[in-house]
């Protein structure tokens, strides 16, 4: 039995790393955007379009990293559109986000048809598990560089928001736009840049899906990772570090269903497969009332008014 427990633990550990990366990247991008008081609900569109563009680029040029770059560029452009429209008066940023989700997904499916069949060169992993003789350990420790990029970014973002002038500008814009304007900050420009940067990360998250794990382009590639990751930001209470934990939790619990079935526990697999959602909801119900939460909300954020 301890073998079985070890297997499930390893699967969840490996799953946490493999499955969490797209959640982590989208969540970090959205954290940056939301810290400026703007919400972009449309990152699912960036993710799907990014996945398609990355795959198509990698297929046409033979270079997966060029694909990642192209996905980042696509995500930036799409979200810059969001940021630009939201500058206009009387425009609802939540609605514009959903509009861009539709547009991004539509464009991805429209232009993505010819790339469902072919096999594109994929991103390599760094093999960190060669010290172990256990193939499962080796497998779990095959880690894509983008995961480390995500971790590093979380730390940098956390540090930047806390300690730098930019961080101060972003936080001030997000907490009280009027005060920021009084300080001479161009609120619209800060939000535009933050939204575009967030969008590029969501594009990269898409590239991770199509070029690494599961490493293929098709129309059901994303099962709502982009939308869920935006929700995880609220769950993580706008902290880049907590985004890491939230994404890891989501990835690990997502691996639970298949892992339990692999040791022969398959009754009620729909609920094991829904574990990430159930677990997140439980944690939110248990933790949301805390006094701390209220302080961490960017004051200008429309969705948590």
């Amino acid at each position: 039995m301890s073998d079985a427990v070890f297997m499930v633990m390893m699967a969840m550990f490996g799953g946490a790393i493999r499955v969490s990366t797209p959640f982590l990247l989208v969540a970090l991008g959205e954290t940056l955007t939301e810290k400026t008081g703007r919400i972009n609900l449309g990152l699912e569109g960036n993710l799907v379009l990014g996945a398609m563009v990355a795959y198509a680029t990698s297929y046409s040029t033979g270079s997966p990293w060029l694909g990642v770059l192209a996905a980042a560029g696509t995500g930036t452009v799409l979200s810059a559109g969001h940021g630009w429209i939201c500058k206009l008066p009387k425009v609802n940023d939540i609605a514009v986000g959903i509009a861009f989700m539709t547009l991004g997904t539509g464009l991805a499916f429209f232009f993505g048809k010819p790339f469902i069949q072919p096999t594109a060169p994929r991103l390599d992993a760094i093999e960190l598990g060669n010290w172990s003789s256990n193939p499962q350990v080796q497998q779990a420790l095959k880690i894509n560089p983008l995961f480390f990029v995500g971790l590093a970014l979380a730390v940098v973002l956390w540090w930047m928001l806390k300690n730098t002038r930019w961080g101060l500008i972003i936080r001030m814009t997000g907490d009280n736009a009027a005060a920021a304007r009084a300080m001479g900050i161009s609120v619209d420009r800060v939000r535009l840049v933050a939204t575009a940067a967030g969008g590029s990360l969501a594009g990269i998250a898409g590239a991770f899906l199509s070029l690494y794990y599961p490493g293929s382009w098709n129309e059901s590639l994303s099962s709502g990772q982009g939308l869920m990751a935006v929700a995880l930001v609220i769950f993580a209470r706008w902290s880049p570090i907590r985004c890491v934990w939230a994404a890891l939790l989501f990835g690990a619990s997502g691996a639970l269903g298949p892992a339990l079935q692999s040791i022969g526990i398959s009754k009620g697999y729909y609920f094991f497969n829904a574990a990430p959602y159930i677990l997140t909801l439980i944690i939110m119900v248990l933790s949301a009332r805390s006094q701390k939460a209220a302080h961490e909300v960017p004051g200008e954020l429309s969705i948590v008014k």
């Binding site: 429209i85 425009v91 539509g106």
Partner: peptide
Amino acid sequence: PDATMLVLQGIIFVTLLTSESLYG
């Protein structure tokens, strides 16, 4: 492709929301 309609929906959606700023 079937996604043509999704692209059109997206464009309609973005344009209509942008037009909200014209009220008044």
